[in-house]
Computed example of a mutant assay.
Amino acid sequence: MVDERIALCRGCRVGDRSCRFGADLFNATSPEEGVAFVQCPADFDGGPEVAHGGWIAGVFDDVLGRFLTHRGVKSVTATLSVSFLMPVPVARPLILRTRVLSREGRRITMAGALRLEGEHQDRATAEGVWVERRPDHFERHRAQMSADRPDTP
């Protein structure tokens, strides 16, 4: 078992901020799997003491993509499908497990499962495809967005 600490993403490394998704503790347990210890902040509730579905989808996207980044793969999310199985409580310790399912060329299929610490049943699961970025990825996006802007006087 590998115990490799995974660092915060670029957005949360600025200043003294902690992870905006509550995923401050993240370990790679093998080259294909990882585990993040997360906690939904209380202000991300979608109902009384229940995590908002957007937070759940966001934390899956962040943690699964971050796992690839720290494995040396710079990628962007192509698809993400989340299954909401049970309510996810806010302000309680959660475990999010990541796993690489397959890799075909630049496309990597990932899966994740979120459960309350100490429980043995998943509260939410996700599966998605990440695409390894080409070196000019962001330049192509900027050019496209500039072309899409209407001219303003």
Rank of each mutant, 00 (worst) to 15 (best):
M86H: 15
S83M: 12
S83D: 15
R97G: 04
R71K: 11
F84V: 05
R99T: 04
S75C: 13
R106M: 06
S102T: 07
P135E: 10
V90K: 01
R71Y: 09
R99Q: 08
K74I: 15
M86G: 07
M86C: 11
S102A: 12
G72Y: 09
K74S: 15
R134V: 13
R97L: 07
A113N: 06
T98I: 06
M110R: 03
V100T: 07
M110L: 13
D136F: 08
R107S: 10
R123L: 11
R97M: 05
G112Q: 00
H137G: 03
T69G: 15
L80A: 14
F67S: 04
I108L: 12
H70V: 08
L80T: 05
R99V: 03
T125K: 03
R92M: 12
R123P: 00
V73S: 06
V73K: 03
T98L: 03
P135C: 10
T109H: 08
L94H: 01
G72E: 11
V73F: 11
R133W: 06
L114I: 02
E117S: 09
R106G: 06
F84N: 02
S75G: 09
G128M: 10
P93I: 08
L101Y: 05
F67W: 07
T109G: 05
A78T: 11
I108V: 12
P89E: 13
T69F: 15
L96S: 00
V76P: 04
R107H: 11
E119A: 14
T79C: 06
L94T: 03
L68T: 04
R92A: 15
D136H: 09
R71M: 13
V131W: 03
V131T: 10
R134C: 09
V82W: 00
R103Q: 11
R123G: 02
E139C: 08
L116W: 04
R115P: 00
G72M: 12
A124V: 05
Q121E: 15
L85M: 14
E119R: 09
V76T: 14
R97W: 03
R97Q: 04
T77H: 13
L96W: 01
R99K: 11
A111T: 10
E117Y: 06
F84P: 01
E127C: 08
S81H: 14
R97C: 02
